[in-house]
Design a protein around this nucleic acid. Structure first.
Length: 422
RNA sequence: GGUGGGGUACUCAAGUGGCCAACGAGGGCAGACUGUAAAUCUGCUGGCUAACGCCUUCGAGGGUUCGAAUCCUUCCCCCACCA
């Protein structure tokens, strides 16, 4: 079997390794882990790089462990951050852990014959420590010089915002995670984004000191698009894996809108398609960029992986309707189905028919305030059932309510909200 | 603990008594052009209002003043140096 390290490299998923022995160590099955921070109730496409890497590891016969940071999430990882973050409440973190675990369960194979995946929560071990015990048993093995030298610490100390002791201590916790996973599961590999380098090496150092063996780290690149923007944001919002936060349609569309220059690279990173096939798409993008074949395939593959055939079907159908056919001959049934995952509100008929289009835009949640709605209409960006609203005085006519049940509101080219009339 | 610097809208950052809902930049939203791409250009970017205008906002609370983001005072927080 091909060495996992080569696979990561040829797919653009490799940034750095902690030791030159990494490739050798990967020739036989190992146990590898990656951590996920419960700072949000759902993972985002930004987490995809790590998830894909774990997937490749598992496909190569290695055991994978996903760690949900129930404890570390309470402290806050300073890596890659320019300022201290505000603490989340315990309830929020607990709530988020559930969502993250659910997300992860869609990618990892727990029934794998030889290398079933597992999900663990570091609160289970870190939550038990007393402060004194931790400082005596673990803290004693950390040297100030090394800790201060970490990029995550240095950058912050040099900045205006500084850093609290709480965040400074973070690296010890993540290092302990690695040690614990080594003890309990024989885990000798950790993977993570390139910003995790400091935390990962803190772990390999700790294991070397306390167990006398070499543990390894592999970092993954920070994926940016061709304009240098960090991958994973659309219109300033993160793209979530939870369909309640990012609809099937929006999720699919995010990938369809990938720039030509990024299409092939993203296919390598975010899908398991064979490289030979990806090369064909690469040619296709050069010859007939306007067809967007590569982007469509990318969106299809990723959406299927995250939302299954059903989610994909909904997204594709919605896309073809919204970008092709007119909406006029569609029934309420169809619209409800197509927009099943678009934000919607239910309102009584009395509040919709005859209501000003400005009020309706606000009620539906499409605009945050009347002022915003007014400005949107004035710039010609508000549509009712895909027809541009031509003035702030416009009202919703009974005929605008499709089958007396639904009104489709749109802001600009891509943001839809649904009004269900009851 | 001492000394000095700082906290302004989503972010950075001007503003040091009325011309300030607050310069500018970035971001965001929308429009035009396009291929649902990129680049470019244009408008908007606290709330309410059709509009005149009104209301809330410059770390928090008091105060001075006809009038405060700007002055005084107390408190909170951050940074640097010293201890």
């Amino acid at each position: 079997m091909q060495n996992i390290l080569d696979i990561l490299k040829e797919r653009g998923l490799l940034d750095n390794v902690t030791s030159e022995n990494v490739k050798e160590a990967l020739k036989s099955p190992v146990t590898v882990y990656a951590g996920f921070d419960p700072s949000s109730e759902s993972l985002q496409v930004g987490n995809f790089v790590t998830i894909m890497a774990l997937g490749h590891f598992q496909r190569c016969g290695h055991k994978v462990i996903a760690v949900v940071g129930g404890a570390t999430g309470m402290i806050g990882d300073p890596s890659g951050r320019t300022g201290e973050r505000s603490l989340l409440s315990v309830e929020q973190i607990e709530h988020n852990q559930v969502g993250i675990s659910e997300n992860l369960s869609r990618f990892l194979d727990f029934k794998h014959s030889t290398a079933p995946a597992r999900i663990v929560n570091n609160y289970d071990w870190l939550g038990q420590f007393s402060f004194i015990t931790f400082l005596r048993d673990i803290g004693k093995h950390f040297r100030m010089g090394v800790m201060l030298g970490k990029e995550s610490v240095r950058a912050r100390l040099e900045s205006e915002s500084g850093m609290s002791f709480t965040e400074f201590s973070y690296q010890m916790l993540q290092a302990y995670d690695f040690l614990k996973l080594y003890d309990d599961h024989g885990c000798t590999f950790q993977i993570g984004g390139s910003d995790q380098w400091g935390n990962i090496t803190a772990g390999t150092d700790l294991i070397r000191k306390l167990r006398g063996i070499e543990a390894y780290g592999v970092t993954l690149p920070l994926v940016c698009d061709s304009t240098g923007q960090k991958f994973g944001k659309s219109e300033g919002n993160a793209i979530y894996l939870d369909h309640r936060k990012t609809s099937y349609y929006d999720f699919y569309q995010f990938f369809v809108r990938t720039a030509d220059a990024d299409a092939a690279r993203f296919l390598r990173i975010f899908t398991f398609l064979p490289l030979s096939e990806i090369r064909q798409y690469e040619e296709q993008v050069k010859k007939e960029p306007e067809k967007r074949e590569a982007q469509k395939r990318l969106a299809e593959e990723v959406t299927r992986m995250v939302h299954g055939e059903r989610g994909l079907k909904v997204a594709v159908r919605a896309s073809s309707v919204l970008f092709g056919e007119a909406m006029d001959d569609l029934r309420a049934e169809d619209l409800m189905d197509i927009f099943a995952n678009v934000p919607s509100v239910e309102l009584p008929d009395s509040k919709v028919a005859g209501a000003g289009v400005i009020d309706v835009a606000v009620m539906s949640g499409l605009c945050k305030s009347k002022g915003e709605a007014r400005r949107l209409v004035e710039s010609g960006g508000l549509y009712v059932n895909n027809r541009r609203v031509d003035g702030i005085q416009s009202v919703i006519k009974p005929a605008d309510i499709v089958d007396n049940r639904v009104v489709v509101l749109r802001s600009g080219k891509k943001t839809y909200h649904l009004l269900k009339v009851t």
